[in-house]
């Protein structure tokens, strides 16, 4: 078992190997699975999940059981807000982006304040916020139509933009570079790891722990909101609770990327690979000719097997 841990020391490597293996397997099962256009489609779906997972990753890195269960609600809300602000017109896009970012930041701020000032455990706070967001979605849906995506936004998400890749892939690459820069080249990033590995020590060293944590939750809200905006572009119009499918998968993408839920170590590059891995796995299951029920069982079992490769807890004897 110890030798195995040695090999699995690099989660990014495992994820990449698994992705390659799954692509080969998929192509063997149904020829054309690993074709260029198909991979591009998978990457678009992975980008949506990956952008949500960026915020989730930050909150988890910050430690103290950091987790954001409200991301799914923010994604849904943001898609509706964006749809209504732009209402099918390109001219409304800048305002829509602003509205989405503000929405995400606002709910992130609430989460952050609850977690820091009231010291509510993040799981509880964001779970409660998820309930509020879901209620808010019902209110909004009764009052106004769900809105439509502007053509330019849909094109940004689905059509090739530069070197054959759609804008959303470039956006995701940008998010990846930004996250790498923030986490490894800025004081803010150093502080994220500091509060994640030892909050007390970080506090003693003068890190504004509370403000940091609030900022992390706000960033999580903003990333989820941006994903919601892109999701609107992907599907054309928003429908009820579209974001729910991102809540727990965003956490799994982070875990598959090598960031343990205890925080303090890991990074975003692995999470990006984790998001791709999840999406490829889901897609391979849809190509196999089995029922929805069988698909779910295989998916659940495979997730468990994959988790064996990642950050297992320490043994009590260790």
């Amino acid at each position: 078992m110890n030798r195995l841990t040695g090999i699995t020391a690099n989660p990014l490597l495992i994820a990449l190997v698994l992705i390659a293996a799954l692509l080969f397997l998929g192509d063997a099962l149904s020829p054309g699975f690993a074709s260029g256009s198909q991979i591009l489609r998978l990457l678009i779906v992975a980008a949506l999940l990956g952008i949500v997972a960026a915020g989730q990753n930050l909150v988890i890195l910050g430690g103290r059981e950091g987790i954001d269960l409200s991301v799914g609600g923010v994604v849904s809300l943001s898609a509706i807000v964006a749809g209504n602000v732009m209402n099918g017109m390109d001219g409304g896009i800048p305002l829509a982006i602003l509205a989405c970012v503000a929405t995400g930041a606002l709910f992130g701020l609430f989460n952050g304040l609850g977690v820091t000032l009231l010291r509510i455990p993040p799981l509880v706070m964001t779970l409660g916020m998820l309930g509020v967001l879901q209620g808010l979605l019902v209110v909004i849906r009764q009052g106004i139509p769900s809105g439509r995506a502007a053509p330019a936004l849909s094109e940004f998400v689905t059509r090739p933009f530069l070197f054959g890749l759609p804008g959303i892939i470039w956006l995701w690459i940008g998010v990846g570079l930004l996250m790498a820069f923030i986490l490894h080249r800025t004081v803010f990033g150093q502080r994220v790891y500091a509060i994640g590995s030892n909050e007390r020590a970080a506090f003693m060293a003068g890190v504004p722990v509370r403000r940091m944590r609030i900022a992390l939750f706000m960033l999580s809200g903003v990333f989820a909101a941006i994903a919601g905006l892109c999701l609107l572009g992907y599907s054309g119009s928003s429908f009820a609770n579209v974001g729910e499918q991102y809540m727990l998968p965003s956490i799994i993408a982070v875990v598959f990327g090598g960031t343990p839920l205890s925080g303090g170590k890991g990074g975003y590059t692995g999470t990006m690979a984790g998001a791709v891995l999840l999406v490829v796995l889901q897609s391979i299951l849809t190509t196999i000719n089995i029922d929805e029920s069988g698909r779910q069982m295989v998916f659940g079992a495979t997730l468990l097997v994959l988790m064996l490769f990642y950050g297992r807890g320490r043994g009590l004897r260790a």
Binding site: P260, M297, A301, L303, L304, M307, R314
Partner: peptide, 19 residues
């Protein structure tokens, strides 16, 4: 197996739902 409870029980929940 010492998997992280949140993600592991989410995975089993998908399995149970399939069943």
């Amino acid at each position: 197996l010492r998997l992280q409870a949140i993600v592991a029980t989410f995975a089993t929940s998908i399995f149970f739902t399939g069943l």
